[in-house]
């Protein structure tokens, strides 16, 4: 019997400085570096996990948040299976911008059915004491915008980070049986570029 592995592309979006890279690094390497550089360009890390007996490889993409870099960031939205909209609970502006990030993602990722697309919302930096965004406000936004799951995370002390990613995976898997993602583990080389060899032959 062959087990099946899914390769899921997840993208972290949100204002500069909300902690996207820190969340990714906490999840993948379980480390936190308060003095991490801000991201230039795009980066990604892979992480293997098992969710509800599904073997999954998450490919987590992290981008530079500044407006100026939009044109060189948005192409990487293509093919995302899930989008983690991220803000920082000590930065109200980053919360207000969630809607813009969502819009940008839907537009550039070319999502076919935006209302069904699995977004997960992360309110990061809950370790800080001076909050500008309350849990209730954030939950309300999530409810009103598509009933998205909401997690209050701290990359610094690892609060809810893994849980949020696992929920993201569940959302994706629940979308459908993802049969088109299921491929035999024994032949899959996830470091190889996934690419259709037949899609262009029409």
């Amino acid at each position: 019997m062959t087990t099946k592995t899914s390769l899921l592309k997840v993208i972290l979006l949100g204002d500069g400085g909300v902690g996207k890279s820190s969340i990714m690094n906490r999840y993948v390497t379980n480390k936190f570096d308060a003095h991490l550089f801000h991201t230039i360009g795009v980066e990604f890390l892979n992480k293997d996990l098992e969710v509800d007996h599904h073997q999954v490889t998450l490919q987590i993409w992290d981008t530079a948040g500044q407006e100026r870099f939009r044109s060189l960031r948005t192409p990487f939205y293509r093919g995302s299976d899930c989008c983690l909209l991220t803000f920082s609970v000590d930065d109200n502006q980053s919360f207000l911008n969630l809607g813009n990030w969502k819009k940008e993602f839907i537009y550039y990722a070319d999502v076919k059915e935006p209302e069904k697309f699995p977004f997960v919302v992360l309110g990061n930096k809950v370790d800080v004491t001076e909050r500008q965004v309350s849990t209730e406000e954030a939950q309300r936004w999530c409810q009103e915008n598509g009933d998205y799951p909401y997690y209050e995370t701290s990359a610094k002390d690892a609060t809810n980070v893994a849980v949020a990613f696992e929920e993201a995976v569940r959302r994706v898997l629940a979308m459908d049986e993802r049969t088109d993602h299921l491929i035999p583990t024994d032949t899959v080389k996830l470091h190889r570029k996934p690419r259709s060899a037949v899609a262009c032959c029409s």
Partner: peptide, 10 residues
């Protein structure tokens, strides 16, 4: 084996 995804190309 991996002909199901083509995001990199897109």
């Amino acid at each position: 084996e991996e002909q199901h995804q083509r995001p990199p190309q897109e």
